[in-house]
């Protein structure tokens, strides 16, 4: 913008450019810049070398056939279990946070602050090492149980705050209407408030789910047997043995295969909710 003002002052006799013209010029400049960057990138890069490192044909086939499906399923299992656990515990925590009984509010508050502040990787490590502290302790479902519990506990802290916000976003009149019809508080909550709250928070909850998909890549830290490999661990191992990035690229694309349909689904649900609203 500063250039525009200086030019208008130095070239006083000429008519000032109209705002629309100026905006048009700015748009052209942006296109030009983009094209220059592309030309530079293409001229410096060696497409054959790039293909060899990131997308080598034989390695693509190796990666696809040596258990990618299993790793993909593992990532989905880890995520789904943690999400279900986090959602359930998060709902309970959110209700505790809004409870009339003060100690429940405090407990939920402490839990949320604690586990929201801890990196997921620390919690995972802790759960992985828990049997050291409590000999004989066995978390059910083996590695899956450990991952579900650790990621679920962290996710619950985040989701509790989201769900609480959702509950508070439901207009007070909805509860009043439900109570005026004779519904006890529990039924009013379950049938009227929570369904509307979850409708409101579907987009942020999906965000949590997508974050969880990516957090599941941390499970390597607890030491997995080959059967428990998730996408990242699987891709990384193959990439290291072959000194080539192709397996990691494939693993990365698999994450998109999970998250992109989720984003699409949410957008559809949102537009449907918009119509019902």
């Amino acid at each position: 913008m500063s250039t525009a003002t200086t030019s208008s002052t130095t070239e006083a006799p000429r008519r000032r450019m109209s705002p629309r013209k100026r905006a048009q010029r700015a748009r052209w400049a942006q296109y030009a810049f983009l094209i220059i960057v592309l030309i530079v990138l293409i001229s410096v890069s060696d497409p054959r070398q790039i293909l060899k490192v990131f997308f080598r044909g034989d390695l693509v086939i190796d990666t696809l056939t040596q258990g990618l499906g299993h790793a993909l399923l593992n990532t989905i299992y880890y995520t789904a279990g943690a999400f279900v656990l986090g959602l359930t515990a998060g709902t309970v925590l959110a209700l505790m946070r809004l409870s009339q009984v003060a100690p429940y509010r405090w407990l939920a508050g402490i839990y949320i602050e604690l586990f929201r502040g801890l990196p997921a990787i620390v919690v995972l490590l802790g759960f992985g090492l828990l049997p050291l502290a409590f000999p004989g302790l066995e978390i059910p479902f083996g590695t899956y149980g450990v991952v579900w519990l650790a990621l679920g506990i962290v996710a619950a802290a985040y989701m509790a705050e989201t769900i609480r916000a959702g509950i508070q976003a439901v207009p007070k009149g909805q509860v009043e209407a439900a109570r005026s019809l004779g519904m006890p508080p529990g039924i009013a909550n379950r049938k009227i408030v929570l369904p509307q709250a979850f409708r409101i928070i579907t987009p942020p909850l999906t965000n949590e789910l997508i974050l969880l998909v990516k957090d599941s890549s941390l499970v390597y830290i607890i030491g997995l047997s080959a059967g428990g490999y998730d996408l990242t661990k699987y891709g990384r191992d193959l990439a290291q043995t072959n000194a080539n990035l192709t397996p990691l690229v494939i693993a990365g694309l698999c994450y998109l295969v999970i998250t992109l349909p989720l984003s699409f689904l949410v957008r559809r649900m949102e537009s449907r909710a918009q119509r019902a609203r």
């Binding site: 207009p171 009149g173 209407a177 439900a178 109570r179 005026s180 019809l181 509307q196 019902a276 609203r277």
Partner: peptide
């Protein structure tokens, strides 16, 4: 109170229909 309320209908200024 819930039993009494079930016999007392109420209509609000803002309707308060269950939107879902």
């Amino acid at each position: 109170i819930d039993r009494v309320r079930s016999r007392v209908g109420m209509v609000f200024q803002q309707f308060n229909l269950f939107s879902h």
